[in-house]
């Protein structure tokens, strides 16, 4: 039971990262392999706001996320849109965007290493016990989970109940047809990419409250986010949330019952099962 609750609490943050990535890949068609670096940058951001300016990390989300939104908007507009424009087909764009975001990954990682060095960072925020089903859990983890749920629900409502959200979903389904019904596909893609970055940054801000982080750990989270997105089905919000839950619980189970050093192996096992039996994802439709 304790394992289950820990896993579920962790999965809230995972879900946010994966939602960010699924927006970027599903709508803007960019497989962003620098997504982990956005997350780590947000960790450092929240850390700095907390330690230098004494701003509560939950409150600083309202600073970190908008900054990430703007930065990601510029990344898309300046670096990635030229790739979208020059690509003759989906495959070319995929290769180009993978290589370009690898470049960004190394660049951001290098800059953060310069700025903060390779040491591990953490800070103490709401590090007090909170009882769930009779067992104590870190209050910061609970707060992070609740915040993640609120953000995820807000995203879901935005995508399904607003005009612009519907337009974004239309671009995800078919960019050409979306263009034909007067949706500005280029703008919707940029917006989705930026929004995805903001979500990932929000996840980073929340993660930093209970997780020890360093400048070069981004790629691990990129892996996890990618696997969640593929498990859930690319572009599928419900799938991403469910897959994040599965991954969070599976990881905690393996870490506490077998060996903490095997969490990635557990993730990979889920990944292989998905690839072999349901490559389109939990909710994904079979490709024709």
């Amino acid at each position: 039971m304790e394992i289950l609750v820990t896993g579920v609490l962790l999965s809230g943050t995972y879900a946010l990262i994966a939602l960010g990535l699924t927006l970027q890949y599903g709508v803007a068609r960019i497989m962003n392999l620098a997504t982990g670096e956005t997350l780590v940058a947000a960790c450092f951001g929240a850390f700095w706001f907390f330690s230098a300016l004494h701003i509560n990390p939950v409150a600083s989300l309202f600073l970190v996320a908008p900054i990430a939104f703007v930065v990601n908007w510029f990344i898309y507009a300046l670096l990635l849109r030229p790739l979208v424009n020059r690509a003759k087909n989906r495959g070319m764009l995929e290769v180009d965007s993978i290589l370009a975001t690898f470049g960004l990954m190394f660049l951001f990682q290098g800059l953060m290493l310069l700025g903060f060095g390779g040491e591990y960072f953490s800070y103490s925020f709401l590090a007090e016990p909170f009882d769930i089903f009779g067992s104590p859990f870190g209050l910061n983890r609970v707060v992070a989970f609740v915040a993640a749920v609120v953000i995820a629900i807000a995203l879901y409502v935005f995508l399904t109940h607003t005009r612009y959200g519907t337009a974004i979903r239309a671009v995800a389904v078919d960019p050409v047809s979306a263009g034909l019904v007067a949706i500005n596909v280029a703008r919707a893609s940029a917006f989705a990419f930026a929004l995805g970055g903001a979500l990932t940054a929000a996840a980073g801000g929340l993660l930093s409250t209970f997780y020890t982080f360093n400048a070069s750990m981004g790629v691990v989270f990129t892996m996890k986010a990618l696997i969640i997105v593929i498990m859930g089905g690319v572009g599928d919000v419900r799938g991403a949330v469910l897959a994040a839950l599965i991954l969070g619980v599976a990881e905690t189970t393996v870490a506490s019952l077998i060996d903490p050093g095997l969490t990635l192996a557990a993730t990979y096992f889920l990944f292989i099962v998905t690839l072999l039996f349901r490559p389109q994802g939990i909710y994904g439709k079979k490709q024709a």
């Binding site: 392999l33 995929e94 790629v219 095997l262 990635l264 192996a265 292989i272 690839l275």
Partner: peptide, 28 residues
């Protein structure tokens, strides 16, 4: 066999973590 039937993205992602996976297993 597991990944090359699928699109290139899956392959990149899978191989991205492969070294880390083997490393974890060997260490364990």
């Amino acid at each position: 066999l597991a990944t090359l039937r699928l699109s290139g993205v899956y392959f990149v992602i899978f191989t991205l973590g492969l070294a880390e996976l083997v490393r974890q297993v060997v260490t364990w």
